[in-house]
Amino acid sequence: MNTARTLAGISLAGIVGITVLAPATAHAATGPDAQETRSAQAAAPAKWGPHHAPGRRARASGSLTATPKDDPGAPAPRVTVTGSVTDLTRGPACGWAVFRVSVKETGGDVSLKHRSYRTCSYGKPVKFSFTHAGVYEVELKVCAEARASKPSVGCLYAGTWKPLYTYYA
């Protein structure tokens, strides 16, 4: 019986505490700049990196901006990734930043899109930027390998991807 009284007292105190705090919170959320403030906070770029290729032969870093959403179970309406990749090999190799983006298709299916950026000039970063709509996840892999028009199978499928954005986080 004492336990029931204690729990009832805690519940009542919690309700009173919420009631006392609610007017201040409601006023702060309904001010003239409230919507702009919430949007600016939610859409602020999140820094990522630096991430390195094995042996620190390439480096990538940047920022990611996801538009705000009401439902945490829904994909982000739009995600923008910006950054740079730098080759650190001093040889005939290139530095790659490879992104794997999970996007919602019009029929409700999920597909994987790849974006890759390379530089073959030692120490000179190459900047990149891309945007996708309906994003569930953005992952990154940094590789250093021989000059080619696209990343190798080893770069794409060996090792682990580094998550930069997940829709439910």
Rank of each mutant, 00 (worst) to 15 (best):
G107M: 05
P54V: 13
S149M: 03
A44K: 13
A29G: 02
R38T: 15
S84K: 13
D33V: 01
A22W: 11
C155S: 05
A46G: 09
D70Y: 12
G154C: 04
R38V: 15
G62D: 08
L12Y: 07
V135I: 12
T65N: 01
A66T: 02
F128T: 06
A40T: 15
C143V: 04
D87P: 04
A93S: 04
S149D: 13
D71P: 06
R100Y: 00
D33W: 06
T166Y: 03
R147D: 09
D109E: 12
P75L: 01
A144C: 07
G14Y: 03
V138F: 02
T82A: 02
T67C: 00
K150W: 03
G107T: 13
K47S: 14
A158Y: 09
W161K: 07
T37S: 08
G17I: 09
G55S: 12
E137L: 03
A29D: 04
V103T: 14
S84W: 04
S11H: 04
D87G: 01
P77G: 12
A46D: 12
G31A: 05
A29E: 09
A58H: 10
G108R: 09
T89R: 05
V142L: 02
A74K: 11
L88N: 02
A158C: 01
Y117V: 13
K47E: 14
G134K: 11
A42R: 13
W96D: 00
R5C: 00
R78H: 04
A43T: 10
L64K: 07
A4G: 01
T6G: 00
G49V: 14
P77L: 06
I18W: 12
R5N: 04
V85H: 05
G73D: 14
D109A: 12
V98Y: 06
A43G: 06
I15E: 03
M1L: 11
P50D: 12
K113F: 10
L21K: 02
P151L: 04
G14S: 07
L156N: 06
A144R: 06
H51Y: 12
P163A: 11
V20T: 10
S102W: 02
T82E: 06
M1Q: 08
A93Q: 07
G95K: 13
D70Q: 14
K124F: 13
A146N: 04
Y168L: 01
Y117E: 10
S84F: 05
A42P: 01
N2Q: 08
T19S: 08
A34S: 14
G107K: 10
R56P: 00
Y165I: 07
L140M: 07
Q41S: 07
V153W: 07
Y167C: 00
T30D: 08
V81H: 11
T6D: 01
A42E: 12
E105M: 14
P92A: 10
S149N: 11
A76S: 10
T25W: 14
K69L: 07
K162P: 00
R59C: 02
A46K: 15
Q35E: 14
G17A: 15
